[in-house]
């Protein structure tokens, strides 16, 4: 078997972003338990299956099978434990034990974090299926992925910003990383070609817009899409301002350099 191939998949919680994963995700794009068996059957018949070790794939399989269960069980160890009931080929009569969940996904809330990361990665990958490669549609499709699990999201975001060690009590960096990765993916999908400062400006503004829209969605799901649209239109003004600020700063810098040179100091 190819160690590096399955190593990538097993080692990376965000397996869906690797090359192998893209293929894997194509074969195994599950969204509902009832479709899982059929999709896995397709996967098992694929050339990829022969290259990947069945056992090392199982952890990734379980995570994938747990994603549809989030809708009913939330981001819980219960969802992970029940995933084994849908495992094709080796049906289990009972959910996985707590010990097994800890062995595979981490103890305590770490297993929930593993599930949450997997869900976020899956939802981000799914942004490619937006109806058109326009920023508004891409971000809206990502928001739409939240809808079935909206009631679990506040707790999930709470988990996201609570570091496993408890120190500091709150750590916003995972939440910032979450919106930044969505912004990056969205820019990639719409074919953004900006460079330099505008590259950062574009992603920062998209991340801010998406973050605000997602927060709005938690409070008012019905108006989230209008809110997103209005934010996007105003954000383009902010981006223009940033780019103008860059040009203005350069101009000021050159002016000062000229003044200093002409003063005879150097």
């Amino acid at each position: 078997m190819d160690g590096s191939a399955y190593g990538d998949i097993v080692a990376q919680p965000n397996w869906t972003r690797s090359t192998h994963d893209s293929k894997w995700a194509g074969y195994l794009k599950s969204s509902a338990p009832d479709n899982t068996s059929r999709r896995l059957a397709v996967y098992r018949g694929s050339p990829l299956y022969s290259r990947l070790d069945h056992h090392t794939m199982s952890r990734a399989q379980l995570l994938k099978l747990a994603l549809p269960l989030v809708k009913t069980h939330g981001f819980t160890r219960e969802a992970l434990s029940r995933s084994v009931l849908y495992l094709p080929g080796t049906p289990h009569a009972e959910p996985l034990s707590e010990t097994a969940i800890s062995a595979l996904f981490g103890d305590g809330d770490n297993a929930r974090r593993t599930l949450l990361d997997a869900w976020l990665d899956d939802a981000r990958t799914d942004m490619k299926s937006a109806p058109s490669p326009i920023m508004k549609d891409v971000l809206a499709s990502r928001l739409r992925r939240n809808e079935p699990i909206l009631r679990w999201l506040p707790e999930a975001f709470g988990l996201l910003i609570s570091p496993p060690s408890g120190v500091p009590p709150l750590d916003p960096s995972p939440a910032l990383k979450h919106v930044a990765s969505i912004a990056d993916e969205a820019c990639h999908i719409v074919g953004d070609t900006s460079l330099g400062l505008s590259w950062y400006a574009r992603r920062a503004s998209v991340a801010a817009v998406y973050g605000a829209a997602e927060l709005h969605q938690l409070a008012s799901p019905a108006t989230a899409y209008e809110f997103l649209e209005s934010l996007l239109s105003s954000s383009s003004n902010i981006e223009n301002t940033l780019v103008n600020t860059e040009a203005y700063a350069k101009y000021i810098g050159r002016s000062w350099a000229g003044i200093i040179k002409s003063s005879g100091v150097f």
Binding site: A11, P13, D53, S58, L62, L104, F105, N110, R113, T114
Partner: peptide, 15 residues
């Protein structure tokens, strides 16, 4: 893994 077990990711730590 070679013995047939499924393990966590091939890294140290939780999970």
């Amino acid at each position: 893994v070679d013995a047939g077990f499924t393990t966590g990711g091939m890294f140290e730590g939780k999970g």
